[in-house]
Design a protein around this nucleic acid. Structure first.
Lengths: 191, 191, 191, 191
DNA sequence: CATGAATGAGCTTTCATTCAT
DNA sequence: CATGAATGAAAGCTCATTCAT
């Protein structure tokens, strides 16, 4: 894999950005090269094939880009010094803030996930969350529970809120954030 | 809308059943009329178009059928006499049992949901859950929280568990059920 | 592989026939579904894909059809009772007559052969010819030579004549036939 | 047509050489500018279009180059002083040796021939061979036959052997050469 | 001269849908 | 009612070619 030129990188980024927009607006099924090309102001779908070996590579690139943006966003807002409980709170909080800042990314992510070829990196999320929970248990912050199972719950809450908020713009994200943090704390804390 | 003859109803049911199987096995994207017809033992996709005005109507019918089956299943197992907390427990429990008994329906539901046109009947679920929660608050079983928000959480937990279990057959559903009930109880109970 | 209906067989035959014409006129590279559909009076290339699983199946069908026609034609004109030398003469003669009767088939065959997927049935021809030559040697009609090598020669002569005559309509096929038979006889006869 | 600079000539030669390799390895259908550029170490297919007016010119150039190499090779090995029969033997012999020395050229030639636009220079071969045969007849070396027709045969034998040997590497070229010379001699000699 | 990005026509294929029988 | 043949739109993708730099 030889290095991409600057122009190439820029075009790829532009196409990925257009794809994200279209995915968020029309959903995966209606997202064709034609739509993406139109959105990106390209004169031909051939150009997309020129920059991406196939639809799969584009889909994977979209996924990677959204994850990159998301991870970066969350990491910047994580509270590394503190307790596991603190990290958990920061994680949830960052997720909701990301939704506010990049709603299209969030929706596109949901649309694209079932079609990503990469060994499912959702498993990554799961593993990291379970580790954080176990750490909190070792430190005595959290009660006894099966960390893998509760990790499913935490991520389910996150996903469910994002999905709901994606469909229902009227959801009050501030309220949601407070309640979410409360709920997770009640569900995990010791005693 | 004139009444459907018995034959017609039977055919529709047969097609919907086949569609559910195919959706569960191949996913939405690979579910074509051809696949469904083959699965149903029909010799022509024309028959599907004959009985359903279009793909959308079939999709909606699949959704309706899965929901009907699901609702029926859950209702039979609800504990109506008891407390709101009891109902909540019964609801969660029934959901997991349904997954065990009708995994294909569950997977098909997930595949089909994003393409359903009907005014989202997920909203129905939400409303009912919120009502149940409010009832529990009035009775003093639950702590103070925003019922609409927590309804999102409860359903998110349910959906997340189902999704995870759909993809990862190794998940221990019994363990999952116990932890889920514990978590929801901790998160909602008074005091 | 279930039986094809009569209509289906007819359509397939029609498409194959059109493909043969187009191949003969435009060559393999310019033979697209579009051209074939136009030639066959079809309103859509989709119909070709409907009747043939893919381009490869069509190509193979064309090859099979031409070979079938050809083999039938030649077999009818073979002199089975007689000597190996007689059979050889009859074979060559029949080949040239086929060219006169079905020039398009012949040209299409040449165009299509490199793209046929079937285990090369040109090897079949070769084996049969070598067997015939060996038989003639055992009977004392033919001189000693390496039958496999001379089989290559005989088929090469046949192919070369067909190719030349395909490109140069002015070739005198009667003269060609007489000379060809003479040459092969001189090259193979004992003494 | 202004003279080509040295650089230009070199580039053209490089591209043609790469094209020959690709043609021999992948066949005509899979030989794209992209493949050729990659093989030649060029970073853009644009360069090919720059040096050749179109694909046709490249194809014709490949053909011309192979023919040039081939003719040169054969001419060097011809026995000019001798009889027509001797020249004929030398010609056949040289052909087989060329195949051994430059198999790729030979295969590329076969791939490219059907797509060459140039007034078929195969006719050249034919004319020369017919002349040689007539000369042999005048000198009393060869029997009476139609020289044009037998020229077709000789070239057909040559082509057929090359084609067969191209596809079947197990062919014994030494044996083939001896048999070929014998056959042609039997078929042409006087008495 | 060489580069690499861009273009648009063309390809095969799949799909939901229609319609005569 | 059911069948299977036919339709045409749309998809992803490849290709030779063009052009600004």
């Amino acid at each position: 894999m030889r290095a991409k030129s600057l122009t190439e990188q820029a075009r790829r980024a532009q196409i990925v950005a257009a794809a994200i927009e279209v995915l968020a607006e029309l959903g995966y099924g209606a997202t064709s090269f034609k739509q993406i090309a139109a959105r990106a102001g390209l004169s031909s779908t051939g150009l997309i094939s020129y920059h991406f070996k196939g639809k799969q590579e584009l889909v994977d690139s979209v996924y990677a880009e959204v994850r990159r943006t998301f991870t970066e966003f969350v990491l910047e807002r994580m509270d590394h010094s503190a307790t596991a409980a603190g990290e958990l709170r920061a994680f949830l909080s960052a997720n909701l803030r990301f939704l506010r800042a990049h709603r299209a990314h969030m929706v596109a992510l949901a649309q694209v996930r079932p079609h990503v070829s990469a060994a499912d990196s959702a498993d990554d999320d799961h593993r990291k969350m379970a580790d954080l929970l176990r750490q909190g248990q070792r430190r005595g912050e959290f009660r006894e529970f099966d960390a893998d199972t509760v990790a499913i719950f935490v991520l389910a809450l996150r996903n469910g809120v994002l999905a709901r908020a994606g469909d229902h713009p009227e959801v009050d994200l501030d309220l949601c954030e407070r309640e979410l943090i409360t709920v997770v704390e009640l569900a995990t804390r010791r005693g």
